[in-house]
């Protein structure tokens, strides 16, 4: 039995279709990431699972129980979920302890004190139990929110961009904390994020969303290595995505022609090539170097390609400065036939 099951979900705000015929299954104990750019419908999808938005069409089931099919609707407080928001949503008029105790108080559960302190222990905040929210840092607030969402042992934990408001160091720390909590509690989690690194690092499976549809749903390494669409390749790998045409085994784009490392039939294609899969040297297609960016472990070169730019990363090459010409050859590419 799956923890969450969405079938044929559609949702529009006014005239804009935000989610289009989306179906998705989240397995028990799984961490599924909904990854995509802002406006792709990932947050709306999560809010429909929470019951904070209602789909225009489709069914939502939680642990086999129908919670929304248009006619019947289970209120968010009756769904047994936990949720962490991007803006923390820690109640400013309650102490840390009172925030975490709230879900238990509503259910009139016994031994509230002990369970609250246990949950605060999970996120290493037991010492701050009686602080007020305005005395806490962003990272601490988000850990309070995490404890509050988990204290009632929800069937599914929904995480809506939980790390986006934090600076880089805190983000990595809290990312590790989510992973270890998951190992400890085994809670099913759905993580909404626009950060591919976060999705790839935490998730068992990643659903890459674009314009209201899931373009690819697979394990992180598969999404990275074998993107099923040019969008996924561009969004997840940060690859170069070029629209052009294959003629006589060569790829033509913006007035330049590249030799292909694979055989391909003639016709219009979208070619995806990662920045590290292009070689710069003496053989290949000559292009003008626009800019050179030192990235630490490697160097990024930007070469003019008509109206766009070709990005290449590799070792530093002496004498290659902006204005000079360099020859690029493609070592590995993925081709997508145009429909």
């Amino acid at each position: 039995m799956s923890a969450v099951e969405l079938t044929g979900i559609e949702k529009s705000f006014g005239a804009t279709a935000v989610v289009k015929r989306l179906s998705l299954e989240v397995k028990e104990h799984e961490l599924l990431a909904l990854l995509g750019p802002s406006g792709c419908g990932k947050t709306t999808t999560l809010r429909m699972i929470a019951g904070l938005e209602r789909p225009d069409r489709g069914r939502i089931q939680l642990a086999g129980q129908l919670v929304d099919d248009g006619a019947m609707f289970v209120q968010p407080e009756k769904r047994g979920l936990g949720m962490v928001f991007q803006s923390y949503a820690v109640w400013p008029h309650k102490s840390v302890f009172e925030n975490v105790a709230y879900p238990l108080q509503l259910r009139r559960e016994p031994a509230i004190d002990a369970r609250v302190m246990e949950a605060l222990g999970w996120v290493r905040l037991a010492a701050l139990a009686h602080r007020r929210p305005h005395e806490l840092s962003g990272g601490q607030l988000q850990r309070v929110a995490l404890a509050r969402a988990l204290v009632g042992r929800p069937k599914v934990l929904l995480l809506d961009e939980p790390l986006s408001n934090l600076d880089v160091a805190l983000r990595e720390e809290l990312r590790g904390e989510i992973a270890s909590l998951r190992a400890k509690l085994g809670t099913t989690m759905i993580l909404v994020t626009h950060d591919q690194g976060e999705a790839l690092a935490l998730a068992d499976r990643v659903a890459v969303m674009n314009r209201g549809v899931i373009e690819q749903l697979a394990a992180p390494d598969v999404v990275y290595r074998e993107p099923s669409t040019p969008f996924v390749a561009g969004f997840v790998g940060g690859a170069n995505v070029l629209d052009g045409e294959v003629r006589n085994g060569r790829f033509h784009v913006e007035g330049h022609a590249f030799a292909l490392p694979v055989t391909a039939e003639d016709g219009p294609v979208t070619l995806v090539v990662r920045a590290e899969d292009i070689a710069l040297g003496t053989t290949g297609t000559p292009l003008a170097l626009q800019a050179r960016l030192f990235l630490g472990s490697s160097t990024e070169y930007r070469l003019s390609l008509g109206s766009t730019v070709l990005r290449i990363t590799g070792p530093a090459i002496n004498g290659l400065t902006p204005g000079s010409s360099a020859s690029a050859s493609l070592r590995a590419v993925r081709l997508y036939r145009k429909p």
Partner: peptide, 17 residues
Amino acid sequence: DPSLEEAARLSGATAAR
């Protein structure tokens, strides 16, 4: 912030509560 109220709903509070 609307999420302050949404967090209460997800914690099990009715709209009135």
